[in-house]
């Protein structure tokens, strides 16, 4: 088992176009290891349980352990049985597996939390605002859409909030997800290595239209994205954007205090891209 884990840790940092390891790969790798190990542990423990249950079943004959063990008596003061040492051995093994697995994932968590080094990646910053029942995306030029357009192979940083109730923004295929909480900002990042159309969904019950609260996500080749983005310039933007072209780094997760007003999305619902 350890060699298996090692072979995976060796492959922790395969570089992709854009030089950034996508969250979806991090997830896929950890999930795979957990699935394999979890299944193995599950099979072993359940089999072990069944083995005990069947091996020591009462076949109606005489008690084969009559002279070895003392059976519980009615009205006795409860005490423990023998065999505590085996419990501890098994417990220790299980504890080692669990703790080492989680410890291994912790380094990956740090990567997901901090994101790729901002100096190396020219992140695109997009504000996401959830509402009943849809999503609004605000780009650095203040342009807003209800479909999320992002370039391929570029780190996208999302600042997510809600204008009404508690939502949760997730794009399952790209393995990005974060809560959309009214009055708060949370952040998340992802990169998409493949162009195509994906879905963003709401993962927190938000009312009658919750099931249908789906937004389209279009991952475009970089040049196509640029031309789309340039076409939006000035169409709805106020023009005094300080965070133009995503050079401003996102602040740490959700500060209780809201970020600067300039980063706030335009309040107009809908948008040109819708």
């Amino acid at each position: 088992m350890p060699s298996f884990v090692l072979s995976h840790t060796a492959a922790v940092f395969p570089l992709h176009g854009g030089g950034v390891r996508a969250p979806s790969e991090v997830f896929a790798q950890i999930f795979e290891v957990f699935l394999l190990l979890g299944t193995a542990v599950g099979v072993v423990v359940v089999a072990y349980t069944m083995y005990h249950a069947l091996k020591y079943r009462d076949d109606g004959g005489a008690d084969p352990y009559a002279d070895k063990v003392e059976r519980p008596q009615m009205g006795e003061m409860p005490t423990g049985g023998s065999g505590g040492r085996k419990v501890f051995y098994s417990f220790s093994i299980s504890a080692i597996i669990v703790v080492s697995l989680i410890a291994w994932t912790y380094s990956q968590l740090l990567y997901i939390e901090q994101g790729p080094d901002p100096a190396q990646t020219d992140a695109l910053e997009i504000d996401v605002e959830g509402f009943r029942f849809g999503w609004e995306f605000a780009y650095p030029n203040n342009h807003t859409t209800n479909t999320l357009y992002v370039p391929q192979d570029r780190v996208v940083r999302l600042q997510v909030t809600s204008r009404d109730v508690f939502h949760n923004f997730g794009i399952p295929e790209l393995r990005v997800k974060t809560d959309a909480i009214p009055g708060q900002y949370t952040s998340a990042w992802f990169t998409a290595n493949e162009t195509g159309t994906y879905e963003a969904k709401c993962y927190e019950l938000c009312g009658s239209g919750h099931s249908l609260m789906i937004a389209e996500v279009r991952v475009l080749p970089q040049d196509e994205y640029e031309s789309w983005y340039n076409g939006t310039e000035g169409s709805t933007g106020s023009g005094n954007q300080t965070a133009a072209n995503g050079t401003e780094t996102a602040t740490e997760s959700a500060d209780l205090a809201a970020p600067t007003a300039s980063a706030a999305p335009a309040a107009t619902a809908g948008g040109v891209g819708a």
Binding site: V26, F27, I30, F31, F34, G38, V41, G42, V98, L101, I102, T105, Q108, L109, I112, N168, G170, P172, R175, K177, T178, Y203, E204
Partner: peptide, 17 residues
Amino acid sequence: ITGVFLGAIVLDYQFRG
């Protein structure tokens, strides 16, 4: 066992909801 998956925060993020 399936709960241990949720203890790994990276997995938990995606399992949420």
